Amino acid sequence: MAALSLVAVLNGPNLNMLGLRQPHLYGAATLDDVEQLCAETAESLGLAIDFRQTNGEGELVNWVQECRGRAAGIIINAAAYTHTSVALLDALLATELPVIEVHLTNIHAREAFRHHSYVSKAARGVICGFGPRSYALALIAMADLLEDTR
Rank of each mutant, 00 (worst) to 15 (best):
M1P: 15
A3H: 14
A3E: 15
L4T: 14
L6R: 13
A8G: 07
A8F: 08
V9E: 06
V9R: 03
L10P: 09
G12P: 05
G12A: 11
N14K: 12
L15G: 04
M17G: 07
L20D: 12
Q22M: 12
P23F: 13
H24M: 11
L25S: 14
L25H: 12
L25W: 13
Y26W: 10
A28Q: 11
T30N: 10
L31A: 09
D32W: 03
E35C: 11
E35R: 15
E35A: 15
A39R: 15
E40W: 01
E40D: 15
E43W: 00
S44D: 14
L45M: 02
A48T: 11
A48D: 15
I49Y: 01
D50K: 09
F51W: 11
R52N: 15
R52K: 13
Q53W: 09
E57V: 07
G58S: 12
E59L: 11
N62G: 10
N62W: 14
W63V: 07
W63S: 00
W63D: 01
V64L: 05
V64W: 04
V64F: 05
Q65V: 05
E66W: 15
C67Y: 00
R68E: 15
G69W: 06
R70P: 02
A72Q: 12
I74K: 00
I74W: 04
I75A: 03
I76N: 03
A78H: 04
A78D: 07
A79Q: 04
A80C: 08
H83I: 01
H83K: 08
T84S: 10
T84L: 09
T84C: 06
S85F: 02
V86I: 14
V86R: 07
A87R: 01
A87W: 06
A87Y: 06
A87M: 08
A87G: 01
L88D: 03
L88W: 01
L92V: 07
L92W: 02
L92T: 12
L93D: 13
L93M: 14
L93T: 08
L93C: 07
E96L: 03
L97A: 01
P98H: 08
V99S: 01
I100H: 02
L104K: 00
I107Q: 04
I107P: 02
H108M: 14
A109S: 14
A109N: 13
E111R: 07
A112G: 07
F113N: 09
F113P: 04
H115N: 11
H115F: 05
H115Q: 14
H115D: 09
H116V: 08
S117N: 09
S117R: 05
S117I: 10
S117K: 02
Y118F: 14
Y118D: 10
V119M: 09
K121C: 08
A122E: 13
A122L: 09
V126H: 03
I127T: 00
I127Y: 14
G129E: 09
P132S: 11
R133A: 10
S134E: 02
Y135K: 02
A136V: 05
A136I: 03
A136K: 02
L137W: 13
A138F: 10
A138Y: 09
L139R: 06
L139P: 00
L139W: 00
L139T: 01
A141G: 02
A141E: 03
D144F: 05
L145T: 01
L145I: 10
L145N: 00
E147L: 10
T149K: 14
R150C: 04
